[in-house]
């Protein structure tokens, strides 16, 4: 499990008391659900907390092909017969790590059911193919994230009710300026121009864009500018072009970049 430990402190600028809240929830080993838009710092927050608590962190980015077997484990063939390979969830539950399932809702429905027995007082993981009932390590904790804006149907109530939840949003402008400046080394002026641009793109959420520019995109734009790319070109590369394929929105965002710099 030591390979999963985080050696240096991941930078995280708290927007409120989410760190204390998370620590309290971890002390009780309550499963946590992080809700919020893409790129607003959910993953970084989990990394920061894992570092702070000194626990290994196993992260699984869920996609629509991810099934229960991908989390729990499966039989593999090797020279002399079959061999069981623990999946990331099983490994975390055995070894006492924090298991972070990023964008859980993307995974296939059978996946959410697998985590149910781990998220109540039983804290067990039945591994049917192995005929084993795995009792989770005392340090094990489960954290999942999802972006409710993108999914009309949401997670099943039976799943949601097992979690305590923290709501994340894009940080307030001053915090975001500090984050962009810290992560990219950009000047405060440049960082605030970029954050103003980010706020502008988020106005198109619900109006054609699934989501506005994330803090991560702004950090990348700032890094490109520091590498000597002109601000407008950097913003097109890091923000406008990735955000949308719609030619009219591209044009509008591009014009907004031109207006900003």
């Amino acid at each position: 499990m030591d390979a999963w430990r985080i050696a240096t402190e991941p930078y995280y600028a708290p927007s409120g008391d989410e760190c204390t809240a998370f620590e309290a929830a971890y002390a009780e080993r309550l499963p946590m659900l992080l809700k919020g838009p893409t790129g607003c710092g959910k993953t970084r927050f989990v990394e920061h907390m894992a570092w702070r608590l000194g626990k290994p962190l196993v992260t699984v980015a869920c996609n629509e092909d991810l099934g229960a077997a991908d989390l729990v484990g499966r039989w593999l063939i090797d020279g002399g017969g079959t061999r069981w390979q623990d999946g990331p969830l099983t490994a975390a539950a055995r070894g006492g790590a924090i298991c972070y399932l990023d964008e859980l809702i993307e995974a296939r429905p059978d996946t959410t059911v697998v985590i149910h027995p781990l998220t109540d007082t039983r804290r067990v993981l039945p591994i049917a193919p192995l005929n084993e009932l795995l009792h989770a390590h005392p340090d094990f904790a489960l954290v999942v994230s999802y972006n409710p804006d993108l999914h009309a149907q949401g997670l099943k109530p039976a799943t949601l009710q097992r979690f305590c939840a923290l709501r994340f949003d894009h940080p307030p402008a001053e915090t975001e300026v500090a984050v962009v400046a810290h992560e990219s080394g950009a000047s405060p002026e440049l960082a605030s121009s970029l954050v103003a641009l980010g706020v502008r793109t988020r106005r198109l959420r619900q109006h054609g864009l699934e989501d506005g520019a994330s803090t991560r995109m702004l950090v990348r734009a700032a890094s490109l500018i520091r590498r000597g790319i002109a601000p407008r070109a950097a913003c097109r590369m890091a923000v406008v072009t990735p955000l949308t394929d719609d030619p009219e929105l591209q044009q509008a965002l591009s014009a907004a970049v031109d207006a900003t710099f």
Binding site: R203, H207, E248
Partner: peptide
Amino acid sequence: MPTTAMLQAWLRTLWNIAP
């Protein structure tokens, strides 16, 4: 060539207005 939809999106990003 700016279109109505493009201009609408642009004005929304600039000032959050949708005339």
